[in-house]
Every structure is written in structure tokens, then in C-alpha cells.
Design a protein around this nucleic acid. Structure first.
Length: 212
DNA sequence: CGTTGGATCTTCT
DNA sequence: GAAGATCCAACGC
């Protein structure tokens, strides 16, 4: 049984700098519990969204809609939304309350319950990796819209983030522009994406873009 | 190998 | 009506 002290406290998420938090989240562990069974994965790729100036953010210019309401909530909550009508994307809400920063989790390396995670993916695992990509890892870990708003620091939540003390050197992390935000003007150029370059569990675009 | 199109929900025009 | 923080299978070379 893992100790509760390994949970990342809410104070970690309150920092008013989502870029720093996105970088520090590399190597941390996302845990979900379904029917009492744990599955988990280590974060290998993340992206910061720094509202209101960030035109790629759902909360650009303090835009507020039913969908992105959770971005304005307390730090350390989950913001889950549906992308392209199909995929559920998982974000961590950061910054003080009413400041709509967020960090998108784009890829994980499966740690616990790998066989369960494989079963959650329906397609035949030919080319694509198990949990590489923001819409894929949510399937692996059984994250859905039902988890929107969960407190990631709360031991009672079925969705949490833990620190397993994995040591990541600074030179193992690369920053690049973000994926899929090309139409967001100057915001598209910001190096708000972080990848653990030694990992094979990175989103497909990591390789076609040839950022590193 | 690389490229293309379908799936199909929210928001903005 | 179009675009978007995507993924995968089916093509074509």
C-alpha cells in the first residue's frame, strides 16, 4: 500500500506559473482506481496553457463557457473535456482560484495494471503505442468526463497524482512548441510543451514534428 | 514508408 | 457551417 504522503499536495498546483508546473509534472504518477483496482502511469509529456494571454487556451481572454468552467476552479482539480467529439483529454487545473491556467497531460508510461490498460484500448496494438497521446492515456487509465472536477490531491478521489520520487535530470527534458495549436498566432511558438526525451511513450506528433 | 478521411461534440461565426 | 489541445484504419507508392 502506497503511503498517503506520496500524494502531491494542493499547494504544488497553486503556483502562478503553469509552465513550471508542466515541467515538474514530468516523472510524476497519475493513479486511477476502478472498483478498487489501481492502474497508473508516469507522465512523459505535458503542455502548459497560460490564460488569459495564451490564444491556444480555452480560457484565452478569460473566455468562460460551460465546458471550460472547471479551469476557473481551485488548483489541483481535474479538467476533462471532449476533443473532436471523440476523445477525452485530461488537464490539471493550476494557479490561484479564478485564474484559468491548466496543464494538459499528453502521454504516460504505464506502470501499474498494464494488462488492464491494454484491455481498455480496443484497437489491435500494431503501430500505435499503448498510452502515447492525450486521447489515448485517458482510455488506458479509465479517465472520462465523470472525473471532471476531481481533487487530484485528495486521497478519496479515484483520480490522483503521486510523487514516486523518480529522479529526472534537467537534460532529460526537452521543451518544444505545442501540438495542434498552429492556428493560435504567436502563442503557437511558445515552448510550453515538455517531453521526457528518453521515453518511448510520447505522442505520435513528437516524431513527425522532429522537434528533437 | 507517407498521406487521407471518418468519427462526431462544443463553441464561435 | 467550420474549426478544433485527436486517433486509427485504409489506402497509395
Amino acid at each position: 500500500m502506497l503511503k498517503q504522503s506520496q500524494l502531491i499536495p494542493q499547494s504544488f498546483y497553486r503556483e502562478d506559473d503553469p509552465v513550471e508546473i508542466a515541467k515538474e509534472l514530468i516523472g510524476k504518477i497519475i493513479v486511477t482506481e476502478t472498483n478498487g483496482v489501481r492502474t497508473s502511469g508516469m507522465i512523459t509529456e505535458s503542455e502548459a496553457y497560460w490564460a488569459p494571454h495564451d490564444l491556444a487556451s480555452h480560457a484565452r481572454n478569460f473566455t468562460r463557457t460551460p465546458r471550460n468552467e472547471m479551469m476557473y476552479a481551485a488548483p489541483g482539480k481535474a479538467y476533462v473535456y471532449i476533443c473532436y467529439g471523440i476523445h477525452q483529454l485530461f488537464n490539471v487545473v493550476t494557479g490561484p482560484e479564478e485564474v484559468p491556467h491548466a496543464v494538459l497531460i499528453r502521454a504516460i508510461e504505464p506502470i501499474e495494471g498494464i494488462e488492464i490498460q491494454k484491455k481498455r484500448r480496443k484497437f489491435l496494438l500494431t503501430k500505435a503505442a499503448l498510452s502515447s497521446g492525450p486521447g489515448s492515456l485517458t482510455k488506458c487509465l479509465d479517465i472520462s468526463m465523470n472525473d471532471n472536477g476531481l481533487e487530484l490531491w485528495n486521497p478519496k478521489s479515484r483520480l490522483r497524482i503521486e510523487n514516486h520520487n523518480v529522479k529526472i535530470q534537467d537534460n532529460e527534458i526537452v521543451s518544444t512548441p505545442r501540438i495542434g495549436v498552429e492556428s493560435s498566432g504567436e502563442s503557437a511558438l511558445l515552448h510550453y510543451r515538455f517531453v521526457l526525451k528518453t521515453s518511448k511513450y510520447l505522442s505520435a506528433m513528437s516524431f513527425t514534428k522532429k522537434y528533437f
